[in-house]
Amino acid sequence: MAEMIKVENLDKTFTLHLRGGIALPVLRNTGFSVHAGECVTLHGPSGAGKSTLLRSIYGNYRPQSGRILIRHDGQPVDIVNAEPRVVLEIRRRTLGYVTQFLRVIPRVSTLDIVAEPMLARGAGEQAARARAAELLTRLQIAEKMWSLPPATFSGGEQQRINIARGFCAEYPILLLDEPTASLDETNRKIVINLIDDARQRGTAIVAIVHDAETRAAITTRLLPLEAQGVAA
């Protein structure tokens, strides 16, 4: 199976200029790789840098040194040093990121929010809407809500809409940050199935999951992370 992500010698320190320039080292010399069809779960105590690592892979955080090679169009591209428009292009076609928080865009309907990433990947309007409808149904969002913007929906509904959005485009790589947090039992199982389906299609997945049961259900390999600590 193809190597989809390769993280090499990654260092990330946050410098808080407004706090007298205090430096918080979070990642030091981190390295690992993820192949197609794998679900690697980041594991470690709070503060070990799980989210920092995931956000760095997405190009959202900027590490000080090291490389993160993302397989994009069959070629490894270093997202740490790629220019912004290349990062956007990688996100558009290769790299999905799912959190539990939906960024609501005023006036855009639920169905359009979910279909958008698939449209952006080049799918036709009809196919994208059909896939969005299928995911919303699977995640138990009532059809009467599809035409409404989700701003006034409950937290759990917004979370499931965000998951539908994340899975709609069938990206080759998926980054999942606590996708099942605060979901009820039924919906958690649905999301676990979605993750499993994606993995079996060959999607490379990196996940952060606190719930032990969900973690056991989706993980093919555990990646332990240790806290660096300010004193280290």
């Binding site: 946050f14 956000r55 190009g59 959202n60 955080y61 900027r62 912004p84 990062v87 956007l88």
Partner: peptide, 10 residues
């Protein structure tokens, strides 16, 4: 200068 979400989040 940089990507919008990079600049605002990090």
């Amino acid at each position: 200068a940089g990507l919008t979400d990079q600049l605002l989040d990090d």
